[in-house]
Nucleic acid binder design. Structure first.
Ligand SMILES: [Mn+2]
Ligand SMILES: [Mn+2]
Ligand SMILES: [Mn+2]
Ligand SMILES: [Mn+2]
Lengths: 219, 219
DNA sequence: TTCATTAATTAGGTTAATCTAATTATATAT
DNA sequence: ATATATAATTAGATTAACCTAATTAATGAA
């Protein structure tokens, strides 16, 4: 089942829209690919025929297992090539996307594996995005509990353990969400509470109950 | 003047057919690209419009200076990528052509120069073909005089210094032409004459006058 | 609910690159 | 010189991936 460049770009766009928790509508795909909803409808029909997606107006497009495998393969190649361009050729991280957009479509059974090995099996691309493995598994960020972070270190909020409404309300009040940066300014021996700075804001004291429910991506 | 993949492949094919000393006819191009002479005529018209080639039935297609520059740029990228695939990714030399056929079309102003530097500015690709420089200049093989070749070493005839009819007649008589292989079996101190094997043939004695007029690509 | 807005879909074209099947021109061999 | 074969070219289709301009369906605000 050889795929055209265009089909590959549609599969990738569908994957990314879905990943963002949005409905994969013709309008959304058209926006992602900078083309026309009418064109998208044509391609939706084609991808349905090939059993790479399912589609209905209510639920939008969904990747089938083979469709998802294809999408992940393309994303894997995109991100591996980005690593190559930055690590080996000396491009800056903000210059490589358009080139990888082309390189991701190069077809060869063994190319991704060989490139992966040559680059030392990287887990993340130059933008910090995870590189899917050959089997499609995404690497997980090596998250660390805020309570385990040392004084002076920083991290970005990757996920939370407690998802109860009171806790999330508390986080909102602190202006703290996924991706917010946290710096540990001090730890109090007495009750393990911490003084932290959120997004480089003023020092705030938080309890050990709070810090043991926040998972960070260290930086 | 952005070019399509197809236009680039035509320019390259025209360059190579011409390089082989053949007339660049629609039939020859069609054979090179494994397509139809009728399709070739369409593209010939398009490339003429873009002033990348000139064409008439009698002389066939000729690259204009910008057309030739484009062709050499594509060939440069093709051969650089082949070096990358063999030297860095560990492919065998006979596996890389089809991948390079795709990679040669990747568009980025700085990519060829960065790849060239990363590879250590190679002069020849894994098949021994010269890699054009950025300015289109082809590297010259580091030829060595047959008279300077040591006993036991081999080389291929790359060019001759003396182009007089008697000398060329003599070479023809020896069944020796461009590309023929020569192995040095022995050197006679007495008059610097040599005993050589041509294309693995029987030993033959040649004079120092002969050996000082043959340039070899060592192997 | 009704009207207005937005989204999805259909209908009908366009362009690039290919094809097959004529047709015309050239070259070759008797 | 004429017939025959081969090459070049024209004519007419096809396919993929787009487009614009209707039209139909769904949403949502008054
Ligand atoms: Mn792409
Ligand atoms: Mn990236
Ligand atoms: Mn190519
Ligand atoms: Mn080569």
């Amino acid at each position: 089942m050889k795929k055209t460049y265009s089909e590959e770009n549609y599969l990738k766009a569908i994957y990314h829209i879905d990943q963002n928790g949005l409905k994969v509508s013709p309008k959304a795909i058209a926006a992602a690919l900078d083309n026309n909803p009418a064109s998208v409808i044509d391609m939706i029909k084609k991808l349905q025929e090939k059993l790479l997606i399912s589609y209905d107006k209510v639920n939008g497009a969904k990747l089938t297992p083979p469709g998802k495998a294809s999408a992940l393969d393309i994303i894997r190649k995109h991100r591996l090539w980005e690593v190559f361009l930055v690590e080996k050729l000396g491009y800056d991280w903000d210059e490589v996307h358009d080139i990888a957009e082309q390189l991701e479509h190069i077809q060869d059974d063994r190319l991704a594996a060989k490139l992966d090995a040559f680059l030392g099996n990287p887990s993340f691309d130059p933008h910090g995005d995870p590189i899917p493995a050959e089997n499609g598994k995404m690497p997980v960020y090596a998250n660390i509990l805020l309570s385990d972070l040392e004084i002076g270190k920083m991290g970005k909020v990757g996920s939370v353990r407690d998802t109860s409404t009171p806790f999330l309300k508390y986080l909102k009040q602190l202006q703290l969400g996924l991706g917010s940066s946290i710096e540990v300014l001090d730890k109090l021996e007495f009750d393990q509470s911490m003084i932290i700075s959120i997004n480089n804001g003023p020092p705030q004291t938080v309890s050990s109950k709070m810090t043991s429910n926040i998972l960070l991506i260290p930086c």
